[in-house]
Amino acid sequence: MIEMIRRFLRQKSRSTGTLIVVGLFAVASAFTLASTGGQTGAGGGAGFLVLLVLAAACVAKDASGGALQMILARPIRRTDYLFGRYFGIVAAFAAFLVACSLLGVVAKAAWNAGGPPLSPQAMLAGLGYGTLWAAQTAAVFLFFSSFLPGYGDAVAFLGLQVLLSVQTSASWYQRLAEAIRREVMPAVPWDKAFGGDLAALAAAGRGVLATVVFLAAASLIFARREFVYGQD
């Protein structure tokens, strides 16, 4: 699995397009960090888009190109490959957060953007919470990646977000969406959970459970999946 994580990181670090997009978001997040005193805001819009760039079609591209077939012909389990992608996404996102923090320090020193002084504790906490958020979100993404072709994983993930945020007068729909948001994709306030807040801890528990379920479902589906790259 380590080899798979290394491969994912190598792929992303050598993709010029990915580096440019992630770099731009890192700069934007760094200014947020410099002005807030340590919070990158990476769990918000910028973090979401970076995760999208890192994770979209992460399995499908390998499958359609033949790389996955070459890998699966080797003595590794399919779950090693799949979890290699998962931990690769999380590690890449953590690297993005580290880059945000370093750029934030530079931005604060160079422009002194105002706001509270940078707090190393807040920066470390932001890094940890952001990584936990990425681990939770990437599991949902990987679930879709385990069976959808092309950018179907990104489309399904975004579609799910849109469906869950639709406001409608149908009370059954609102209850269903609320139940999914609460039980399947809970927004965990990790700072409060680590602070001992009981409601946040319950949300964290549901988040961890949902992550485990998504990963287990992804590995079950992926283990049974067939890979066609021609019908000759």
């Binding site: 003595p75 590794i76 389990r77 000759d232």
Partner: peptide
């Protein structure tokens, strides 16, 4: 079987592998 895979070499028809490596 992983023991079989350890003795296997494979080359696919379509070569779309890691172009950035």
């Amino acid at each position: 079987d992983l023991e079989i895979r350890a003795r296997t070499g494979y080359m696919p028809e379509r070569l779309g592998f890691d172009r950035d490596l």
